[in-house]
Nucleic acid binder design. Structure first.
Length: 599
RNA sequence: GGCUCCUUAGCUCAACUGAAUAGAGCAUCUGACUACGGAUCAGAAGGUUGCAGGUUUGAAUCCUGCAGGAGUCACCA
């Protein structure tokens, strides 16, 4: 006998049938809600019968008992049931769990859906940095989320394409360029020994400093603040530079290319360390013109309008919003203009089923407007745009502020984590067999395991607090705890050698509570991945991996595995170990976290 | 000020579409090692789920009001 369906599906089907036969209640199997039986009660799967008692015209206890009896008769996998108030707890036979282990959980790809490469892709945009300063903690959450959500959707069967949209043009870039010209003395990454993105960032800060001085001086000479900000010579010059850039001025373009090149080299290094990547990279410098064309089209269609000063707007007052600027009076484009263009381009490039944007919740308004304007421009696919809006990262002493120097730099943070991982490993590790290079790699994956898990375990939609001290913790609900569990299991499996696969046919044993506990967590993996993908929530996967590791550790602590004398039982336990290791590896992989063989 | 979101143990976080006694980790305290890897496990303590109402057989979850916090309302991105 081979297993065809999941026990919960069987239960739902049988319950649906029983409801109809006993009480004439029409309830589709898909609508039958089953939940895991709470630890304190006997059973594996629970049906709450309260919703049916009114129609059944019987007491909750009676309804539960009648359904229980009918389901038990219908399904051989149900070994029994018990009723407590309106809760019907089904008990699932050992054989079901053993068969599940042998036939499903042992598959290295258990829980992962096959990807149809021909299906319309789901395009995930994430990272999308500005090229005027290096990546910081906020970008880290974005990058980890983007990568992980992509992995997650793929695990659920989607044909995912990861894209990055580099914001390589605009007034902010001009600020860095201008400051470098003025104050840089020809400094380069080579001459300074600085990473390119950090060097350019330094001049962005430099601009701000001098600009503020100018504003202050103007105000002291009696100019109003607003006017001073607008008319400070540095600002005027930066704007002129942007204009020259848009006109294709050779000198400006050459400098722009040089400095952006520095930044890209720096970014690539950071992306590599974070273990993220893209299928396609867009540059706004190559796409913003399309946005301008769209604006012209909108004007022709009459859904946009031009003001007297020449600026172009979209009127959204009918949608309860404001008017939105799309082109400045000097004809240069703004953020929204570009995003309109890139959305169209991306739609044309991929014929996407969904366009997902991993962008912070500070831009909720922007995306609301983006979808509205796309709709007004007549694009039926506007509703395929999905803003995966994630919360801000805060520090124990409040928000990150560049002015106050509280920005946590991505590269520094990774350095810190790696140092700590090395210290921890030297103290606790069992890695004598590893060579120097392997050890370096180990420190790296432990450091990133800690960092990634710390960030991804939190519900993406919520703001989170990043406590540096806790993020490098290796105990409790952390990445390294799960990595450790994996390494330990792999050690057992290696020692077990090639035990012949256990067979459920002649198994002469019953499974213990701890084993059943682990099997049940394993069993819920496919459902967890589906639910997590629907919710775009790597956090659900992270918490799953932790639950599995904990269930396993508890089992491991008081159950002999290699010391077990009953060969069948031993084989089953080794098989269980291997299955858990596989599930940990796959779920951590969704989070972008590598698991080591030893640590 | 308008709009959006948030508030769960001392701290950081869970709780899938409303269901049994709201769960973990950290920190604190107590146990378990000549170990199939102790970076572990077992246990104790810790809660009026911001406050006040309402809907429901049943509310952390849904509705209303209030308080506190965040974001946004740019010719920045």
């Amino acid at each position: 006998m081979t297993m065809t369906s999941n026990i919960n599906d069987s239960l739902a089907g049988a319950i649906s049938l029983a409801l109809k036969e006993l009480y004439g209640i029409e309830q589709q199997p898909a609508d039958v809600v089953l939940q895991e039986t709470r630890r304190d009660f006997k059973g594996d799967s629970t049906l709450v019968v309260f919703p049916y008692v009114k129609q059944a015209r019987k007491s909750p206890e009676a309804v539960a008992a009648e359904i229980g009896e009918a389901v038990k008769k219908a399904l051989p996998e149900v070994s029994g049931y018990n009723v407590i108030k309106g809760f019907l707890n089904f008990e699932i036979a050992d054989n079901y769990w053993l068969q599940f282990l042998a036939e499903k959980a042992s598959d290295p790809l258990f829980g992962l859906a096959a990807v149809d490469a021909k299906a319309a892709p789901v395009v995930v945009e994430y990272s999308s940095p500005n090229t005027n300063k290096p990546l910081h903690l906020g970008h880290i959450r974005n990058n980890l989320l983007g990568w992980s959500v992509s992995q997650l959707l793929a695990a659920a069967g989607a044909n995912v394409k990861k894209v990055n949209l580099v914001n390589d043009r605009g007034i902010h870039i001009c600020k860095s360029m201008l400051a470098w010209l003025r104050y840089g003395n020809g400094e380069t990454p080579e001459s300074s020994g600085m990473k390119g993105d950090h060097l350019v960032g330094k001049y962005y800060v430099e601009f701000d400093k001098h600009y503020k001085d100018e504003v202050k001086q103007l105000m002291e000479s009696g100019v109003e603040e607003e006017q001073a900000k607008r008319e400070a010579p540095l600002m005027v010059e930066a704007q002129q530079m942007l204009k020259r850039w848009e006109e294709g001025d050779k000198e400006v373009r050459a400098l722009w290319e040089k400095m952006n090149g520095w930044v890209y080299a720096g970014f690539d290094e950071t992306y590599n360390r974070l273990g993220v990547g893209f299928d396609k990279v867009y540059y706004e410098s190559q796409t913003y013109l399309l946005g301008k064309e769209l604006v012209q089209k909108g004007l022709d269609m009459g859904v946009l309008f031009r003001k007297e000063d020449g600026s172009v707007w979209c009127d959204l007052t009918g949608d309860g919003l404001d008017q939105k600027l799309l082109l400045r009076k000097d004809g240069t484009s703004v953020y929204m203009t570009q995003d309109l263009g890139t959305a169209l381009l991306r739609h044309n490039d991929f014929g996407a089923e969904r366009l997902i944007y991993v962008v912070g919740n500070e831009q909720d308004y922007h995306f609301k407007v983006l979808k509205l304007i796309l709709g007004k421009l007549g694009f039926s696919w506007a509703d395929k745009v999905y803003h995966l809006s994630y919360g801000m990262v805060e520090l124990p002493n409040g928000k990150m502020k560049s002015r106050e120097g509280t920005v946590v730099d991505a590269d520094d943070l990774i350095d810190e984590m790696e140092k700590t991982a090395e210290e921890m490993s030297r103290e606790h590790g069992k890695n004598d067999e590893l060579c120097e290079e392997e050890r370096k790699h180990l420190y790296h994956i432990l450091a990133l395991g800690a960092l990634k898990y710390f960030i991804l375990k939190v519900d993406p939609t919520k703001n989170m607090l990043f406590n540096p001290a806790e993020s490098i913790d290796f105990n409790g609900n952390t990445g390294p705890f799960i990595q450790y569990t994996h390494a330990r299991i792999r050690s057992i499996v290696r020692k077990a050698g090639d035990l012949s696969e256990f067979s459920t046919l002649n198994s002469q044993f019953s499974i213990g509570e701890k084993e059943r506990g682990v099997l049940k967590v394993l069993h819920s993996l496919p459902d967890t991945i589906t639910a997590a993908a629907n919710a775009y929530s790597p956090a659900m996967v992270a918490n799953y991996a932790y639950d599995l590791a904990k269930a396993f550790n508890s089992f491991y602590q008081d159950t002999p595995i290699l010391r077990e004398e009953n060969a069948q039982l031993k084989a089953m336990r080794v098989s269980l170990c291997a299955a858990v290791a596989g599930a940990l590896k796959n779920t951590m992989n969704i989070l972008g976290i590598e698991v080591p063989e030893r640590m």
